[in-house]
Design a binder for these strands. Structure first.
Lengths: 203, 203
DNA sequence: GCCGTTCCCTAACAAGTGTTTGGTAGGTTA
DNA sequence: TAACCTACCAAACACTTGTTAGGGAACGGC
């Protein structure tokens, strides 16, 4: 029990990520507005004012949480979209990638689900609206391509189908818990099976 | 006993419903915690303090909005469940009824989606947890019955299927706008078609 | 006429909010 | 040793929040 050497207890960027992680956890659980900075500080084992050594506002924490999540999301999406797959394979890859992102950024996804709608109106969070537009273009475009190529049904309202697929995937963040007995890939597989083939038994 | 008078410009219960409707609209748009009672009063054309003539707290408004919605929901659900339909027909009826409720109580449903999770822990809103348990019992039970009777697939995780169906239906409240060119029944029909048969073209 | 009720306003309150300022323990560097 | 930097604390600030108390205008019933 000698003096353990901890010259720099936690290097700056590391500590930053830790604090953002706990903040995201609280935001996701209580909602952004319902969360006080005192609560976040408490969870992090420090006082409210101390947070302002690392961040310059509560809003900037939210900003950093959401933007880093979206950056990583689009990194994965762009890779899929650039692969030149067929419509069905693209949808499968996008869904799988989405569940991986939920697995990695569950709190951020939950926050995004709850708050993005009314945040997107603020200038600071305009990138949320941009991302959503890009998102719709990618998914809706793939679905339309699938219809014209004859791999998806053409008797459905395509925008309804888009919202259906989009929502079924992303609401999963509200109940998903990492470390459960379903891997993201397994959940994606079953979800794709339901979305593509339905839950009714084929006769 | 006699002399029932209704000379007022707006009879009390009517005004109450009006205020609750505008409150629900604001709650749904901004989130409960982000909504100030001054904002609600503003939207209703009066001052903040005046709301307290009709309601005794902001929380009681939320309470009344959610409980009246759930009452109406279960009135419809119980009717369906008592009809003694087969599993597939029960699911179809529940989905259709759900979209009708979204049509009638869009703001309440949106609020429920966003807030119920952390509200259910408070004693005052314990009925939310009760309702959710009853809800799961009805839907999950119907799905299980469908599997044993051979109308639904048996190669899927049944709880995953439950959450899939449940979420696909209720998140629709986040984008649904009454008066659009799709009636609740039409949306229900297409959703059921997707959930039951899938979006892939059968070959 | 007066009375009572309904419904809202004015003006304030106390508690809680995000944020700032100045300070300081403890390690690193010169 | 002294100067310096990091990461936090202590205490306050200005502001917003939900809520309350008293008052008053409009109106129907008597």
């Amino acid at each position: 029990m000698s003096t353990k050497k901890k010259p720099q207890v936690t290097p700056t960027p590391e500590r930053r990520r830790e604090l953002l992680a706990t903040a995201a956890e609280v935001f996701a659980a209580q909602g952004y507005n319902a969360t006080t900075v005192r609560r976040i500080a408490d969870e992090a084992g420090m006082l409210a004012g101390s947070l302002y050594y690392h961040f310059d506002s509560k809003e900037s924490m939210l900003d950093e949480i959401l933007s880093t999540f979206l950056d990583e999301l689009w990194q994965g999406y762009d890779e899929v979209l650039a692969a030149g797959l067929g419509p069905r394979e693209t949808i499968e890859a996008l869904v799988t990638e989405s569940f991986r992102e939920i697995d990695r950024h569950r709190p951020a996804v939950a926050i995004y689900q709850k708050e993005s709608k009314h945040l997107a109106t603020q200038p600071r969070f305009a990138y949320l609206a941009d991302s959503q537009a890009k998102f719709e273009k990618a998914w809706l475009g793939t679905l339309e391509r699938g219809v014209t190529e004859g791999v998806f049904r053409d008797d459905l309202d395509i925008r309804l189908t888009y919202r259906f697929v989009r929502d079924t995937v992303w609401v999963a963040a509200s109940w998903y818990r990492p470390g459960g007995h379903h891997s993201p890939e397994e959940i994606a597989r079953q979800y794709l099976s339901m979305v593509l083939d339905g839950i009714a038994l084929r006769t």
